[in-house]
Design a protein around this nucleic acid. Structure first.
Lengths: 223, 223
DNA sequence: GCCTCTATGTGGGCATTGTCAACTTAACGC
DNA sequence: GCGTTAAGTTGACAATGCCCACATAGAGGC
């Protein structure tokens, strides 16, 4: 918006951001990230090669979009948790917000977790040097953003363990990690299946998350 | 192998199968399905356009590969279940087999669930006529194969409900469906997270599945 | 005020891709 | 035999990702 004179300046001002926005818009519209980098450049009103000044490869642009997606998710989870009291309610609220978030923009959600970001490192090249098991080729930017979102969930688990709502030792890192991972897996998996539309269920998604999480919570308490 | 004379016949014999095999091999080797259709044709020893006699689009070839993947998964689940007694043990065994299966060929697993198959229907075109919610554009072949694999799990749930091992009414379709979906979501989600290597846990995958499923089972029993 | 440096954007080019069209080959029914 | 037709072939086209050499402009030393 700013400085958008008809005499567009040679230098864009904040092309990097503009490219990320354009790419996000494309992902959202087309529900796919198969669009061309050139198309993104067109949208941003620059030449087909300008993006290469900011992103070495198309994958890096997608990575930036994914990271933005994780940050947005984190904020939504935070807001959902804010209005609740008690870890159990917090978990249910965040679970619903999580799934809803994924359903609102399936392609973005898939991109965040997808392999499109890891392709170069994780695939053919990995053959030569034995697949790196530690980082699996996902850009650190994305990993960090993902961890940020995950942290919201881990915090709930921790509080639940401390308050005794969940039958987990708050001092066992492993127990906490396994519990958080379990919950995340369940919600993540449900989101994916619903996105793929292969649940075979016509119940409202909110109902499904609730039931799933409640079962899981009961299991945690039953320990 | 059969009939592979030096005088290669004009007609391949079973090109369709050969193409699927080649594509599957490529997915496995490169851990990605970004390879070109032409590359597949080269592997099968035919011209770059021969595949179009069997698959209208690249997506259709990938669909066939995905369907094959689901069928293989179903067989593995069946075998895993066969050696167990009791629904609880069956569920744990199949869960482990499921995750192991996914980890053995992450790219194939992702392809099976991925959006690569739905792209044309589910994306831009959906804008015109209001997204079809019923089939979401996944080829019926893939959907059917997926349902076959899912059926193994549903069968376990049903038996568990009937035997009273799970506190579910065996006569409530909804209850059964929700339970099956819950278990599937959990295992599917865990598989995905492990594939993406973003679990943040260094526990053995078998341990993680066991813990996750046990928690879920306890939750089902606690009803 | 000038001059150079460097980040940023432009245009052209190349190998490769997915898909279309027109032609060729061989197998099978009659 | 002979035509119909499925299955494979070559050739073409626009588009893509990424490379190169060049153009532009703002910043900083002097």
């Amino acid at each position: 918006m700013s400085q958008a004179e008809s005499s567009r300046p040679y230098h864009h001002g904040d092309l990097r951001r503009a490219l990320i926005d354009a790419a996000l818009a494309l992902v959202t519209e087309e529900q796919d990230w198969a669009f061309s980098l050139r198309e993104v450049a067109r949208r941003a009103g620059v030449s087909h090669n300008a993006p290469y000044n900011h992103f070495p490869e198309k994958r890096d642009l997608l990575g930036a979009v994914a990271a933005a997606g994780f940050n947005a998710l984190r904020e939504r989870l935070r807001k959902a948790v804010a209005g609740t009291n008690g870890p159990r309610a917090a978990l249910l609220a965040s679970g619903k917000a999580y799934v809803r978030s994924g359903l609102e923009n399936p392609a973005l959600y898939r991109l965040m977790f997808g392999p499109a970001l890891a392709a170069a490192n994780g695939a053919a090249e990995a053959g030569k040097r034995g697949r790196a098991k530690a980082d699996s080729g996902r850009p650190t930017e994305v990993r960090a953003a993902g961890a940020g979102a995950k942290a919201v969930l881990e915090d709930i688990i921790l509080r639940g363990a401390q308050s005794g709502a969940f039958a987990i030792s708050a001092r066992s890192r492993t127990e906490l990690a396994v519990a958080a991972l379990s919950v995340w897996s369940a919600v993540h998996g449900l989101t994916m299946l619903v996105i793929d539309d292969i649940t075979g269920s016509d119940l409202a998604i909110e109902t499904l998350v609730s039931r799933l999480l409640r079962t899981l919570l009961d299991g945690l308490a039953a320990r």
